[in-house]
Every structure is written in C-alpha cells, then in structure tokens.
Amino acid sequence: MKIQSEATRVLQLTSQLLKAGVIKQKPAWFDIVAANPPSLDLTKKPKSLQNQQKDDPMNSLFSKRKNVFYKTRYTKEDIRQKNNSTIRIPKLEFVEDKLRDVFYHQHPWEFSRPKDIVENKGTEMEKCDWSHMLQLHKPLDGESVVQRTMWLLKESKESGKKQTLFEAYDQARFEFYQLRMAEETEAAVTREEATMFGCVYPTTYFARGVEKEQPHVDRWAKLAEEQTQYLNAARNNVSASVGSDASEELSSIWDLGLSQDGAAETEQSL
C-alpha cells in the first residue's frame, strides 16, 4: 500500500489546484489551515528505517528526566509523533536472508531449477532434520545450504567448538557440491543405463526446437543463396567497370571462398 500522507498535504494540494485554476475560489478553511498546519504525521514508518529512533512521546509524560524536572505536557513535536509506535511496522531481518542472498549471488543458475512452492500446510520444513544435508521431504537446493549453515552454527555453539559463520557456510556449501555432483552423475548414469536396457526417450525440447527451426533455416538458406549471387554479380559489375583486371584485385581469399561455395551450392541445387 502506498504511504498515506495525503491528509497532511491537503493545503499543498489545494494551493496547487488554485494556482492551476482548477479551483476558482479559495475554500473557507484555506487560510486557517495555512496558519495552523496539521501536526499529526500520518506516514507509516518502518521501525528501523529511521536512525536514533525516539520512544513514543506519548509514554514520556511524568517520567523523571536526567535533570530534576518532570515532563507534564506534550510539546508540539511530541504531538506530531502521537501514537507513532502503533502505526510503525517493524522491519524483519534474518541472517538466513543474508545467507540466501550470498548463496544465490554466487550460484545464479540454482534459480533455474524448478522449485515446488505449493505446500499443503506450510509445515514441511518442520519435518527436516538438519544434522544431515539430504532431506526426505525436500530436494537439495540453496535453502538446504542456508538451513544446514544455521544448524552447524547452533551445533558449534552448543558443543563449544568455535566455528564462524563463514566456516559453517563453507562447510555446508562443500557438502552441497558433493551431493550435487553425485546427483548429476546419477542422472547421467541412470539415463545411460536405461538406454542400454532398451529405453527410447521421446524427443527432447531441444530437438523439438531444432525441428521447428528447420523450415525457417531452409527458407533462409535459399534466400541467402540468391542474395549472395546478387551481391557477387553486383561486385563483379563494379570491378569490371573500374578496370579490366579489377576482378583479380578484389578477390581476397574470403570473397573467393564465398563465390566458390555459392557456385557449388547452385550446382548441387541444379
């Protein structure tokens, strides 16, 4: 949702409209509001976006300050911040998010793997046990690395052996590589094994794409052949008009190859 600050901007907007001539007459409240602008800030602020965030000023009455005075009434500034904490949305920060960010920046192709985002209850992660990398309820992916890193960190803290976040992440990452290698070898070997036992695979998407492309390539090849002939003819004409032995001058090995190929192709097609 857009940040709701329109109510405090009512004077600004109205003056713009007056200036543009959309509103002909000044509203009755215009001067009064201009003299006493709305003090309540309606902007919803995330909790940690503002540095040195103060306490909610509404809680600050009658508390003893550093100096001996008690605060007995709100200042104008306090009223502007009235009930600020109720509308403030907390910004959620997790180490896991940072790990995810690092992992997927280092392994961008992990994004290209299909991911199951439909869960019945959303509690699949509870079934996972991260004392090992492979899970029964979840395929191996970047999330495994993140969760395994967190588990390793927790474990190292409990067992007393020191392991930094980087060390834990690296260990999880290398375990992930090992398992990925095994997975890829298994996929290739399984396919080969099945082929040896007589399995015939359907056309792959890649092959299908090539098949679909072929008519266009054929059409293009014909067209290109014609155009090459025109080009050669035009070039020969130009060279012929310049001088009698110009055709020899012009023929670099590339031109020669092209024209020979063209000739060969026309012979074949004939």
């Binding site: 095994a182 070898t185 298994e186 070997v189 399984t190």
Partner: peptide, 15 residues
C-alpha cells in the same frame, strides 16, 4: 575418486 565412486554408486542394477 569422486567421479569413479559416484559413477559406481549410480548404477541401479548389475554393472
């Protein structure tokens, strides 16, 4: 070693 043992581990039947 990794490739050799992975290849062997991936064989499902006799091989």
């Amino acid at each position: 070693k990794t490739l050799l043992l992975n290849s062997a581990a991936s064989i499902k039947g006799d091989g």
